[in-house]
Amino acid sequence: MASAFVLGDKSINKLTELLEKNDSRLPERLREELEESLGKPEPTTLSFRAARTLQKHLRDEGSPLYLHELLDGASLHLPEVLKPPRNPVLVARLERIKNKLANEEYSRITRNVNTQEISRNGTLADFGREVRSVKAVVATVFNFVVTVVAAFACSYMGSQYLFTDTGARVLAAVIAASVVGLAELYVLVRTMEGELGEP
């Protein structure tokens, strides 16, 4: 909390002039206090008590000089606030509370993480399950290709009794293979929908 003014050059000059002019009229104690304040090294300060005493004296004497003119360019002296040392017991307790809150926050963030599921993801059982599913897809694709090729070959060979022209035989085989391929795709899609649980 401020308890003094920091005097600027103007203030120092005016107070010095006042001391020189009113040597006899200033009270002894006030004059000593002003001389002591002006004799201090930087920063030159003037206490509020001395400023009030000086103002009272100037008013009583009927001086045309006012206190605000004397303190022109002065500022408040705000001493540095010294923080008291922290209590070590309190600091230790605060650290424990911070650690507890950090652990609770971590637990809240990771509560939906299941470590057993994470460790199971890399097991051989999962690898075997994935291999089986890949094997089933490969077998299904191979079955589809073999069925379409077999339908084409059968139709091509069987159409020789109906058509003598090779173009007509190929056209008939392509139509038959397409119909068989579409039927196979329809069955495959229905099977996959059943596995996924869709109607």
Rank of each mutant, 00 (worst) to 15 (best):
E42K: 13
L58D: 00
V6Q: 10
A151K: 06
P64C: 04
A151W: 04
V138A: 12
Q160R: 14
Q160N: 14
E80Y: 07
F48N: 08
V113L: 12
V180Y: 07
M1G: 12
Y66H: 13
E36F: 05
S37C: 05
A125F: 10
L90Q: 14
E42H: 10
G158S: 06
T115W: 03
V146K: 15
L34W: 04
V137F: 13
N87V: 00
P41I: 04
A153D: 14
S159M: 03
A139M: 05
L76Y: 13
N99D: 14
V81M: 09
T123M: 09
C154T: 14
R59I: 01
V141R: 13
T44L: 05
S75W: 04
G181Y: 03
K56Y: 07
A4C: 01
V146G: 10
L7P: 01
A2Y: 01
P64V: 00
E193M: 12
D9Y: 08
A51S: 02
L162V: 05
P85L: 08
T115M: 11
L82R: 14
G73L: 03
E95T: 13
R190S: 09
F163A: 02
P79G: 01
I97G: 14
L90K: 15
G181V: 03
T44C: 09
G39A: 07
E184S: 12
P41V: 07
R29A: 08
F152W: 06
L185D: 04
T44W: 04
N13M: 09
N13C: 08
N121Y: 12
A176C: 06
G158T: 08
L38F: 07
G181D: 03
D126G: 13
V138D: 08
A139N: 03
L34K: 07
S75H: 09
A151Q: 13
F142Y: 12
D126N: 15
T166C: 09
A150V: 11
V174L: 12
L185H: 01
R86E: 02
Q160H: 07
R96Q: 15
H68S: 15
G73N: 06
H57T: 05
N87H: 09
P79I: 00
L185N: 07
E104Q: 11
V145S: 11
E28N: 12
D60P: 00
T140F: 10
T16P: 01
P41T: 06
L70V: 02
P84S: 04
L188E: 06
T191C: 03
N121L: 10
I175P: 01
G194E: 06
E42A: 14
R49K: 14
L19K: 08
S119P: 03
Y156C: 11
